[in-house]
Amino acid sequence: MTREQGRLNPPVGAQDHAQGSAGAAIALVEYGDYECPHCGRAYPIVKRLQARLGAGLLFVFRNFPLAEVHPHATAAAELAEAAAMGGRFWPMHDMLFEHQDALDDGHLLTYVRALDLDPGDLRKALESGRPKERVRADFTSGVRSGVNGTPTFFINGRRFDGNWTDEDSFAAALRAAAPPSS
């Protein structure tokens, strides 16, 4: 009678921020927090896995800011979502993880400038309320999917409870998730 725990809900879809081809055999979804040091450690690992697995891997990032322990996490997440409204999600995502020790408002503004984004446009995007809504929706979907901390990864819709810090075994788990024909 118990529903299986740790199933991604909703599945990867058009609303997601994704890198790679939509038809990839393996979909890796991360629920992360820009201020979480573990997510900071995961960031280069994911980059290397993307390089290793190439076109076979679709990578999706969803927000799961732990606001109680990370005071800047929500603002950072909303900024990335605001950048996304202008088509610049990934550059901001990368910038935030590469500077995750300095996420106060003053630093966020320097990242906006460094990426040649217009602060006025971003302010308008933030004021529209859509980034906030988006971050909250991601968080809720994470809770319903069995996210149990950050980062939490899902491989083809199933929560990965293995050790993501071991890059080789993470890569092996990803490869094992691909259908045999691919």
Binding site: T2, R3, Q5, G6, V143, R144, S145, G146, V147, N148, G149, R159, D161
Partner: peptide
């Protein structure tokens, strides 16, 4: 839950 796995909250909410 397996002792090393944080079970999350989805089951509780369901």
């Amino acid at each position: 839950s397996p002792i090393e796995v944080n079970p999350g909250a989805d089951g509780i909410l369901d």
